[in-house]
Nucleic acid binder design. Structure first.
Length: 488
DNA sequence: ATGGGTCAG
DNA sequence: CTTTCTGACCCAT
């Protein structure tokens, strides 16, 4: 008895992500790094955030402080690089552009991950996955793995499986695996391996006797909803193969922007904090302007190190702005409201500002023009132009513009030299042949969320998107596969 | 509405 | 000297 034809054409979701993205991006830029142990360091060159497989083989773990590694780097032939987000953003854009050719339904989930709506027979889906993997490798130069399944949650799991089990060759189509094997896997994996479940939820689930992914998949969704949340229930349903997390439209409009940083060395003076606040005020202004937004509220904060439990202090102030603004002078002044709360001698390890209550520029009363002379004179714009031309730190208001001086600047001593080559590996150099079974705009839309408790309103029939210019989320290649037995 | 908690990457 | 920096959403208040 053969299955109805439609069964073989159920919409599925492909999850694609780049293996150890930052390290791979550095390699795409500098192929001589291929085969060598490479790590990419966090801000301030503090610790390793991404390790190439060769680096992992040396026993280097994610989060390993660089100062511990440095002495042995030479003997290991270890290449350590400061994180270079410009490079990663560029590589990311190329990957996404390429993936966009394989489906009208691309959701850029993070700087190195995407979901694609796909459909076809199992054999076709597998072929599609392999084709995408090969194309990205060929055209952009980074390795990816692909997981394909009926739901996002399962697609991510399949991807993880593919990554950890060489037998898959980097591509795993969930439904093509015998059920007994899938259950074997789910039975061996802790719930913490699931998308959306971390330490807290794991503990709570464990208390209820739910330890493995299989335990959770077999739990009663309603009970889970009552004891946890609708979100966790969706996870359960998704594990059972019922799509509940739909493909998302590109997120438009943010609710808040945060600018904060840990310092290379603690700041111990109000003067130092003042300087930092000035820089953040200007950064906030530039970002708001870029997105045509204005803020109504600014929060400024500072804090001592979490690792030094004595003498802690976390001052913060919330400043309602007289009118929605993106003006650097006003924002900087507002940020300085934190200063009275800063005590000299306290070792502040980080500080930042947050702008909230954001709204699009342009729908305020004209009166505000006169109340806001800086805006009228385009001070913000000028700052941006100069900054773009001469680099950050070359100009600034008040104490923000001191160049080279501040020792709280990020250390990036091992930065890769420049932006990556264009042309050579550029995706456009060899466009992939479209596959006959692409998920196209005339095909049924991807699964709708079955429970509509969801924040971002979306059109009932999501429209297909081209990948367009992306605003990939920031990302550290974090959450490194803590030891799993995905590969038996 | 707002803030604390939780998660992701 | 376990991880940076964001961003978002859930949920209780």
């Amino acid at each position: 008895m053969s299955k109805p034809v439609q069964m073989r054409h159920m919409p599925q979701i492909a999850h694609v992500d780049v293996n150890c993205f930052y390290a791979s991006a550095e390699r795409a830029f500098d192929p001589s790094l291929e085969g060598r142990p490479v790590i990419v360091l966090s801000n301030n060159d503090g610790c390793a955030v991404t390790c190439s497989p060769e680096a992992k083989a040396l026993g280097i773990a994610m989060g390993e402080p660089w100062f511990k590694l440095a002495p042995r780097a030479k003997e290991w032939g270890l290449v350590a690089l400061s994180s270079n987000y410009e490079l990663y953003g560029d590589i990311s854009a190329r990957v996404m552009e390429l993936l966009g050719r394989y489906s009208a339904w691309l959701e850029v989930y993070s700087i190195d991950e995407a979901f694609l709506g796909v459909k076809g027979t199992p054999a076709e889906l597998l072929a599609l996955g392999r084709e995408m993997k090969a194309a990205v490798r060929r055209n952009v130069g980074v390795p990816v793995c692909v997981g394909i399944a009926a739901t996002k949650t399962l697609a991510k799991l399949a991807n993880k499986w593919a990554k950890n089990n060489p037998a898959f060759g980097g591509v795993c189509h969930w439904d093509s695996i015998p059920a007994s094997e899938r259950e074997g896997l789910m039975g061996r994996l802790s719930v913490i391996e699931i998308w959306g479940v971390a330490t807290r939820l794991t503990k709570r689930l464990n208390v209820m006797g739910i330890f493995s992914i299989l335990d959770l998949a077999r739990a009663d969704p309603v009970m889970i909803r009552d004891r946890f949340s609708i979100v966790m229930m969706r996870t359960v349903l998704e594990l059972q193969g019922t799509p509940c997390i739909p493909m998302e439209e590109e997120r438009i409009g943010k609710d808040q922007l945060i600018f904060s940083r840990s310092f290379a060395t603690p700041i111990t003076t109000a003067a130092g904090i003042r300087q930092v606040m000035s820089v953040y005020g200007q950064q906030a202004s530039a970002r708001l302007a870029k997105h045509d937004l204005q803020a109504k509220v600014l929060t400024a904060f500072a804090g001592t190190s979490h690792f030094n439990p004595k003498d802690t202090s976390y001052p913060s102030v919330c400043v309602p702005l007289p009118m929605p603004t993106a003006d650097p002078v006003i924002l900087t002044k507002a940020a300085h409201a934190l200063l009275p709360h800063i005590r000299d001698g306290v070792r502040y390890a980080r500080a930042g500002i947050m702008v909230t209550d954001l709204r699009p520029t342009g729908n305020q009363a004209p009166l505000s023009l006169f109340e806001n002379p800086h805006e009228e004179r385009h001070v913000g714009t000028l700052l941006e132009v100069v900054t773009k031309k001469y680099g950050r730190g070359s100009i600034g208001l008040g104490h923000g513009g001191i160049r080279g001086g501040p020792d709280w600047a990020m250390k990036r001593d091992m930065l890769s030299p420049a932006t990556p080559p264009t042309g050579r590996n550029s995706p456009s150099s060899k466009p992939p042949k479209p596959m006959p079974y692409l998920y196209d705009s005339t095909a049924p839309a991807p699964p709708e969320r079955t429970h509509s408790h969801d924040h971002h309103p979306r059109s009932p029939r999501p429209r297909p998107r081209r990948p367009g210019p992306h605003r990939p989320r920031r990302h550290t290649a974090g959450h490194p596969p803590r030891r799993t037995d995905l590969d038996r």
